[in-house]
Amino acid sequence: MDQYLIAMGTFACIYGLMTISLNLSWGITGMVNLGIAGFFGIGAYTSALLTTGLHWPVALGIVAAMVAGAVAGAGLTFATLRLRDDYLAIVTLGFAEIVRLVIMNELWLTNGSDGISGIPAPFPRTYGYAFALPFLGLMLMVLGVCYLLSTRLLHSPYGRVLRAIRDDNEVTAVAGKDVVRFKLKTFALSTAIAGAAGALYGHYTSFIAPDVFAPLLTIYIFLALTIGGTGNARGAVLGAFILIAILESSRFFPHLMPGFSAVQHAALREMLVAVVFVVCLMFRPDGLLPERRVKRTETPRAGDA
């Protein structure tokens, strides 16, 4: 059981990186990114190809994955500068599908639907604590650094501009802020984190394939962030851990209910996940840890003067 909890903790950290990434672009800056699985895939393949094909060290592979994620993110921002909301959502969703299809078909580079196996890990890969614990430690460290950085960013003047862009693009521009530049930088930063998440996923499980980056992954990340609470990194990380807790604990629940067939158990499990999410959103529409709105310092009333 403890082995399992360690493994799920590691997966939760990987999801946590993605929710932090999505929180930066969507939660704070208001740029919907339904293509997060695509950036995850770009990062995973970049690091996997460099470490298996060219035998780069894992650490360099992860850095390269972040660079690749950032470049792809910046490119996509340029292509979608005029888009907001639903339109941006559709284009980014399309982007993720394009990434998946390119990976599926460029056999010479990506090995197509067979995927890439035998991706090296930073520590010798064995079954047991010797591998699982250091990897969990590494993931907690990476997640912690990303958490601190994004919290710091949020409370800086830079973060205020991002929230201003989210609330009103044009007013921010009128206030003299270079909106395009802010968007570009933030989106690239967020996709770099998604790229790192992808790379770490590959190094952890040793296998990646185009099917890993199915839209289901993006949906999970959106659910996690919505449950945890958008606009702050605490909510993002909490959401990721809750998501994994719900997905995994739901495995054990249907079996406690007798009288259902195996296929009904699988369906029940999916229903259970859905119900928990719906209930969660009914009672906490802003998530468990919603963004704390900055209160205006009270302007003195006329009579006080």
Binding site: T205, A214, L216, L217, R269
Partner: peptide, 22 residues
């Protein structure tokens, strides 16, 4: 003990870990 692989390699890894570890 039966788990669902969801026809998805990411979900499968978690399901397999449950079968083996738990």
């Amino acid at each position: 003990v039966s788990e669902d692989d969801q026809t998805n390699p990411e979900a499968t890894v978690r399901a397999a870990r449950k079968l083996i570890d738990v």
